[in-house]
Structure formats: structure tokens, C-alpha cells
């Protein structure tokens, strides 16, 4: 294939991805606006909110796990840091959710820098385990610090919500709607970050690190700087989602915010779709979320077993994920599916 043709196929692939991403965002936006005026859409609003919460974590995780190859097994730690930072600001200082989100994201980025300084010198399984330990450590600390509400968590008063309103809904009535749009904003940011990583020189460097870190150094990549930056970027959308969910549910709890389950769910989603692909994050999260919702409603008590079977199945049969598998099918698909 000529260089020109490769570039043309690549450009076509990027166009397809752009259109897909834009279509998803528009569809979500439409449903959100629709739900403001039609009660029948409220079910979709809620299930899509849950989807977008997971998706926010997945989009962050994909940067460090998918592109950089570092298996962050406790990535929900940033969801927790975001949620708790925002809650402290809202609970003690009455800060509004928008400012709280921004500070939460900054706090998570600072935390990622600090945690990364420790864990990013480890590779492979050692890194994975260290990230689990970090998550568990945060959970233990948070459940023991009174200022953070201990194991009871912190809960916002109803009066906190009086200032919020959207399209005629006021106070607590408005929260579910506003949260939906905030989550949509977070997901949009996460998709843009992933598109940037996928197409930039920075992302090329991350892929090289994923494939072979020594060889990456040898071709002039500052691997330490690159992977630290990747880790910091990967903390943003999980933290934003944590802040939004803390506000939406009006409570933070150690188990729910520093949650191994959420970490695992995001790993499943990334792997199912295809790690290190933009389309894979959407595909994987959508499939996982749909299947989970169906099973959770029909067989609520079986969900762990079904999780387990799914994960083992992916690992043994489809470790490269759906999009990753399609990309292997032909050179053309490799260029087309980003």
C-alpha cells in the first residue's frame, strides 16, 4: 500500500470515528433535553447516567491501560478522590457543584502525580497490585477519618440544593437533570482526550511504551514523563464523575467511592471493546452496561457470577477485545477502526 493511500485510509478512519463520537454525544444530548419535557424518558435518563458514570472512568482508564499498557487495577481511586474532594467542599464550605468539580479534578490530577511517582516505577503485575493497594489504603483511611465522615460518609442537607434549577425544575428536583448534563460534559471531555491521545505524537509515544518500554527509551521517548502525564490525564474524567455522583446522590461512602467493583467494571469494559481504541471504549462500555442492566434486573443475585464468567471469557477467548479483534482481521480495518 502506498504511503498516500495509508494516509487516506487513516483520514477516512478518523472521519468515521469523529462522526460516531459526534453522533453519540448528540444522541445523549437529545435524550437529555427530551427528558426535561417528557416523563417517559426519565428511565433512559437514569440508566444513561449510570452508563456515563462508568464511561467516564473507562475513558480515563483507557489512556493508562489501553494506550500506555499499565494495568491500573484500582482506577476508581480517582473517582473516590474526586467524589470526596467535591463533597468536602460542598459539605463544609457550601461550594457549588461546578466549582467543586473543577477542584476535584485538579485534586485528582495532583494525587495522580503523587501516586504515579510511587507506582509508575513498577511494571506488570507489580503495578497492578500496587494500584489495588493504593485503592484499599485510601478506603481504609477515609473510613477512619472523622472529618471525612468515617464509615458513615458525609451527607448533604436538602437545603444545600435550593440554589439549583433547570428548565423549571428547582432544588432537589433539578439534580438528576443537571447531573445528566454534567456527566455528558465529562464524557465529551473524555472522548476528546482519547481522540487526542489516539492521534497525537504523545499517544504514539504511549503506544511505544506499552509495547516495549526499553525500546521506547531507546528511540528517544522520555518514558517517565510520558507515562506520568498519561496517568495524570487518566485521572480527570473519573474524578469529575465522582464529584458529580457525590452531588447527585448527596452522599459519599468509602465502599461506594473507593470501589474495587467499579475499577473492575471499567477494566472489563475497556477489554471487552478493545484496549487502546476509541471505538472500543464506547462499544465495550455499551455492551457491558446493557448486559449488566439486563442481568441485574432479571437475576440480581447472579451478577457477580455473570461478571466472573464474562471476565474469564474475555481473557481466554478475546483478550484483544471486539474492536481489537476486528482490527486484526485486515489491514484496511486496522486503519479504519480507530
Amino acid at each position: 500500500m502506498e504511503a498516500k493511500n495509508i494516509l487516506r485510509e487513516l483520514a477516512r478512519g478518523r472521519m468515521i470515528t469523529n462522526i460516531t463520537v459526534a453522533a453519540i454525544i448528540l444522541a445523549l444530548l437529545t435524550i437529555g433535553i427530551g427528558s426535561l419535557y417528557s416523563e417517559t424518558l426519565s428511565y433512559y435518563r437514569e440508566t444513561l447516567s449510570t452508563f456515563m458514570m462508568l464511561f467516564s472512568v473507562v475513558l480515563g482508564l483507557n489512556i493508562i491501560l489501553g494506550y500506555t499498557g499499565y494495568v491500573s487495577f484500582g482506577h476508581a481511586v480517582f473517582f473516590g478522590i474526586g467524589g470526596y474532594t467535591a463533597m468536602v467542599l460542598m459539605y463544609y464550605y457550601g461550594v457549588n457543584v461546578y466549582l467543586a468539580m473543577i477542584i476535584a479534578a485538579l485534586a485528582a490530577m495532583a494525587a495522580a502525580q503523587a501516586i504515579g511517582f510511587i507506582v509508575l516505577r513498577l511494571r506488570g503485575a507489580y503495578f497492578a497490585i500496587a494500584t489495588i493497594a493504593v485503592l484499599e489504603a485510601f478506603r481504609v483511611i477515609v473510613s477512619n477519618v472523622e472529618y471525612l465522615g468515617g464509615s458513615e460518609g458525609l451527607q448533604l442537607e436538602a437545603s444545600y440544593y435550593t440554589g439549583y434549577s433547570i428548565a423549571g425544575y428547582r432544588g432537589q428536583m433539578s439534580v438528576h437533570y443537571i447531573a445528566y448534563f454534567l456527566l455528558l460534559g465529562t464524557v465529551t471531555l473524555g472522548l476528546l482526550l482519547n481522540l487526542y491521545v489516539s492521534r497525537s505524537q504523545f499517544g504514539a509515544g504511549l503506544r511505544a511504551i506499552r509495547e516495549d518500554e526499553d525500546a521506547a527509551e531507546a528511540i528517544g521517548i522520555n518514558t517517565w514523563k510520558f507515562k506520568t502525564l498519561a496517568y495524570v490525564l487518566s485521572s480527570i474524567t473519573p474524578a469529575l464523575a465522582g464529584a458529580i455522583i457525590a452531588w447527585k446522590r448527596n452522599i459519599v461512602l468509602p465502599e461506594e467511592f473507593f470501589s474495587l467493583t467499579l475499577s473492575i467494571e471499567s477494566i472489563i469494559s475497556v477489554m471487552l471493546g478493545g484496549a487502546g481504541t476509541v471505538l472500543g471504549t464506547v462499544t465495550g462500555t455499551a455492551i457491558y452496561h446493557t448486559v449488566k442492566t439486563i442481568f441485574l434486573t432479571s437475576f440480581p443475585s447472579l451478577h457477580l457470577i455473570i461478571f466472573g464468567i464474562t471476565i474469564a471469557f474475555i481473557a481466554e477467548v478475546l483478550p484483544m477485545g471486539i474492536i481489537g479483534w476486528l482490527r486484526l482481521m485486515s489491514t484496511r480495518l486496522r486503519f479504519l477502526l480507530e
Binding site: E211, D212, D214, A215, A218, R334
Partner: peptide
Amino acid sequence: FQIPKPFPDLT
């Protein structure tokens, strides 16, 4: 590298 270190999953 003496033991080649290609980026295995890249073309």
C-alpha cells in the same frame, strides 16, 4: 538490541 525488542502488537 541483541534480543530484538520490536513493538510486537504494532505493524
